[in-house]
Amino acid sequence: MSENAEQTHPLYAADRDLVDALLGHQGDPGPEQLTVAARLVMRYGDFPGAEDIKADIQKVVSSWGLDAQALNLRCREIWASGWKPGQQLDGDLGSGADVADQDG
């Protein structure tokens, strides 16, 4: 096999779904979108294949007005804030068990 042959990444199908979701995201990216994009940039950066994913991720990141360096900076800030994947940043969300009755 040639050293320059394109390969199929084992996570391609799942990652394609993530990229498609990023392409369809409306509005400003939140922590989830930013960190997913950064993870995919890292995963596919030097990978010999998946050119469609690479091109689409670049398109998404550019549409946010970011380059790879700015994306990484934003993600470092997100992780430093204590955010975890799947976590909402809105402090008003929750079970309600810890919220005082505001009617009276």
Rank of each mutant, 00 (worst) to 15 (best):
S81I: 09
D67K: 02
D28T: 04
Q7E: 10
V61F: 04
G49M: 01
A70R: 04
S95Q: 14
P48Y: 08
A5K: 13
A55E: 13
R16Q: 11
G86M: 10
P10V: 05
L89H: 12
R43E: 04
N4E: 08
L93D: 08
L22G: 01
A37K: 00
T35P: 06
L71N: 00
G24D: 08
P48M: 12
K54I: 02
G30P: 05
E3W: 11
P85I: 01
Q33A: 08
G24A: 10
E77G: 02
D90H: 14
A38F: 07
Q69M: 14
Y44M: 03
K59Q: 07
V41M: 04
L73D: 12
P85H: 07
P85T: 03
L34Q: 00
G30D: 12
D103S: 08
D67P: 00
P31W: 05
E77D: 02
E32Q: 11
A80V: 12
K54P: 00
K59Y: 09
D20E: 13
R16M: 12
H9L: 08
G82L: 05
G65T: 02
P85A: 04
I53C: 01
A5G: 09
Q88M: 13
S2M: 14
L18H: 03
G86V: 12
L18N: 04
D98R: 04
G30W: 09
V19A: 02
A97V: 10
I78S: 01
D90N: 13
Q58F: 15
V99L: 15
K54T: 03
K54Q: 02
V19C: 03
T35D: 15
Q58N: 08
